[in-house]
Amino acid sequence: MNKNETSLVEGLRSGRTKAFHLAVTRYSASMLATARAIAGHANADDIVQDVWLTVFERIDSFEGRSSLKTWLQRIVANRAISYLRSRPPEVSRPGVEEDQSASDWFDASGSWILPPPVWHEDSPYALLAAEDLQDCIDKHLLDMPDSQRNVLVLRDIQQMNFAEICNELSLSASNARVLLHRGRMRLMKMVNHFEETGSC
């Protein structure tokens, strides 16, 4: 923890309103991004609000072994995941584990059977600006197996490093890398499909 964060945590521990306001202002955006990626837009606000109440009551259990931000992200991720699990079965996501090896793209010698489709949006900015595509990414994030999505969210959206991710999710480094690559390949296939058909 840096000095800045240490004094913020002290303020939270003493229950100072100012400290809470600062923390909520500083960290809510990335917490919302995590909650949205895991549990969908409609539920993210409630989840993050709920997490702040927990933090308010249990700040004493923060031991400072990770950064405050990491600690908050872990609580949000856990809360969002248990929210998903608590949903009735008829709306729960199908837990299909598709083949993400992309072996159907290649012939027996490992060469492309067809060239990969050209994307209309092939810069990060253009991808972000395509709203339908972003909605489609949200949908596919929700359809992913939890293990893939969690690694993908923590790494690619939250930009956490592998050591932190393995720690949070109790995964080996090699396992985390496999899950991450599968998740990214799943999104690649989704964008390919979107670019070719114009639909999600």
């Binding site: 994307w119 810069s123 990060p124 900015y125 959206i157």
Partner: peptide, 13 residues
């Protein structure tokens, strides 16, 4: 395209 997709995820945040 892979690189663009991965980078775009970071920019979401």
């Amino acid at each position: 395209q892979f690189q663009a997709l991965v980078s775009s995820m970071a920019s979401r945040n």
